[in-house]
C-alpha cells in the first residue's frame, strides 16, 4: 500500500502512544495476576453443596398419592412440605463461620430448592453444622424482603405479619375437616409463641478447599412432625399458638446429615 505521509511525525507519535498504552495494560495485568495469586493463597475459599432430601421415616418422601402411617397409627397422604433454614454456621478446627444471608426455603415440590450451594467458605476442616429451623425475629420485623424471603412464596402471613417457618399439609381420613385436610402452618416470632428452633448437627469431617466442592446430604424427616399427636384432634394449626410450639418441638430433630460419596445413590 502506498501511503502519502503528509506528516510522518504523527504516525510515530501514535506508535509511541500505542506502545505506552500496551505497557500500561501489561503492567496492570501483572498487578492483577499478583493480587489474584496472593488472594488465592492467603484466603483460599471453597464450595459446599448441601443436597436436601425430604423423607418419611428414612424413605424418600413422595407427595400426593402415597399413603404413610404416623407413629400413632393415623394414615395420611402429604400434599405440601416447605421449610426455612437460616443462619447456617459451620464449626471446625479454626473456629466457626457464619454464612451471611443464608436463609433458604426448602420446597419438597421444587427440586431446584433441594440443592443449596454455598460459595466462598474459608478453606479448612469442619465437623459441625448449626442452623435455625425457621427465621429469627429480626427477619420477621424487617419488612419486605427478597429472594427466598419474598412474600410471594406462600410463607408469609398477611393478616398478622410474620413468616411461616415451616408448612406441612395433607389429607387423612381421621380428620373430620373439609376434604379430610390437615394443615400445619408453623410460625410465630413473639413471646410466648416463638417457633424458630435450632439444629446442631455433627458432620463427618469435611475438608473445604478451593479444588473440589464438598457435598453433604441433609435428610429431613417429616414423620417427626406427627410424634405423639393424633390427627383426629390436632389437624389445623395456622396461627402462632401452643399447638404450633408443640409441632415445632416435634420437628426440631427432623434433620440428619451425611457426607455424600461421589458414587452415591
Amino acid at each position: 500500500m502506498t501511503t502519502q505521509l503528509d506528516n510522518p511525525c504523527q504516525d510515530l507519535s501514535l506508535f509511541f502512544y500505542k506502545s505506552y498504552i500496551m505497557k500500561r495494560i501489561y503492567r496492570s495485568f501483572l498487578l492483577c495476576l499478583c493480587i489474584a495469586l496472593f488472594s488465592v493463597t492467603a484466603f483460599a475459599k471453597g464450595v459446599l453443596v448441601i443436597k436436601i432430601q425430604p423423607v418419611f421415616r428414612g424413605k424418600t418422601l413422595i407427595l400426593g398419592d402415597k399413603t404413610y402411617v404416623s407413629e400413632k397409627g393415623d394414615p395420611m397422604t402429604i400434599e405440601e412440605f416447605k421449610c426455612y433454614i437460616s443462619a447456617l454456621n459451620l464449626t471446625g478446627s479454626k473456629g466457626s463461620y457464619l454464612i451471611k444471608n443464608s436463609a433458604h426455603l426448602i420446597n419438597a415440590e421444587d427440586s431446584a430448592t433441594l440443592t443449596y450451594k454455598i460459595d466462598n467458605i474459608p478453606s479448612g476442616h469442619y465437623n459441625g453444622l448449626k442452623f435455625n429451623i425457621g427465621l429469627d425475629s429480626l427477619t420477621n420485623v424487617s419488612g419486605a424482603l427478597g429472594g427466598d424471603l419474598d412474600p410471594t412464596l406462600g410463607m408469609y402471613w398477611a393478616w398478622n405479619t410474620g413468616y411461616i417457618n415451616a408448612k406441612l399439609t395433607g389429607h387423612s381420613n381421621v380428620c373430620q375437616t373439609l376434604h379430610n385436610k390437615f394443615e400445619f402452618h408453623i410460625g410465630g416470632y413473639m413471646e410466648p409463641y416463638v417457633t424458630v428452633r435450632k439444629a446442631s448437627l455433627q458432620l463427618p469431617d469435611i475438608d473445604i478447599n478451593d479444588k473440589t466442592p464438598v457435598t453433604l446430604t441433609l435428610q429431613v424427616d417429616v414423620a417427626t412432625w406427627f410424634n405423639d399427636i393424633h390427627l383426629f384432634s390436632m389437624n389445623n394449626i395456622v396461627t402462632p399458638s401452643k399447638e404450633a410450639l408443640r409441632i415445632a418441638d416435634n420437628y426440631m430433630n427432623m434433620f440428619q446429615v451425611s457426607k455424600s460419596d461421589e458414587s452415591g445413590k
Partner: peptide
Amino acid sequence: GAVNNIEVQALAPITN
C-alpha cells in the same frame, strides 16, 4: 397492630 412494618402492610388488603 397486627402489621409490624409498613412495607408489608399492603399484603393485608390485597389478600383479604
